[in-house]
């Protein structure tokens, strides 16, 4: 796992994504960017592409796995649709390698700013809202484990 130093905050990560999308005015170009991000998403281990890690409510399938390392959550994910992978990749870049508290407090305003808020509606078939919910759920679980001082490693 690539570790950036100094580590970037969630809002710094969001700003990078916002800047990338700001370069494009046309919707098709924004989607082209999502497709490219989808193609470059680091692929999840095959052992995690099972129903246990499947996020429900998506027209395309999304598998999400979270590991806890040095107080930070490392997310990995995959999808059978490229655009969904692109959206997943965005979320990974913003939320992965952050602390449970930061993830829980993240407002994720970038989704609105880059014009993908339509995907946040619970009725949207790609279930972006379910992905966010699942990532925050992992954060809650790891936070509770930390508080219980179980010292879990993923």
């Amino acid at each position: 796992m690539l570790t950036l130093w100094p580590p970037m905050s969630i809002s710094e990560n969001e700003q990078i994504v916002i800047d990338e999308f700001a370069a494009y005015d046309d919707w098709l170009d924004k989607y082209n960017l999502l497709v490219e991000m989808g193609k470059s998403l680091p692929v999840i281990g095959p052992q995690y592409k099972t129903d246990t890690y499947l996020i429900s409510g998506c027209q395309s399938k999304v598998w999400l796995h979270a590991a806890f390392e040095n107080g930070k959550i490392i997310f990995t994910a995959d999808s059978d649709a490229i655009i969904t992978k692109g959206i997943v990749n965005l979320l990974m870049r913003v939320l992965s390698n952050q602390s449970p508290d930061d993830i829980l407090q993240a407002k994720l305003g970038f989704i609105d700013q880059i014009g993908l808020q339509e995907h946040l509606s619970p009725t949207r078939s790609n279930g972006l809202s379910n992905m966010v919910k699942q990532m925050k759920l992992y954060a809650t679980v790891f936070k509770m484990k930390m508080a219980g001082k179980t010292g879990s490693q993923g």
Binding site: Y31, Q59, T84, N126
Partner: peptide
Amino acid sequence: THPFDTGSIIDK
């Protein structure tokens, strides 16, 4: 390719 990808692009 996945139908969701095709549908999303031609929607745009």
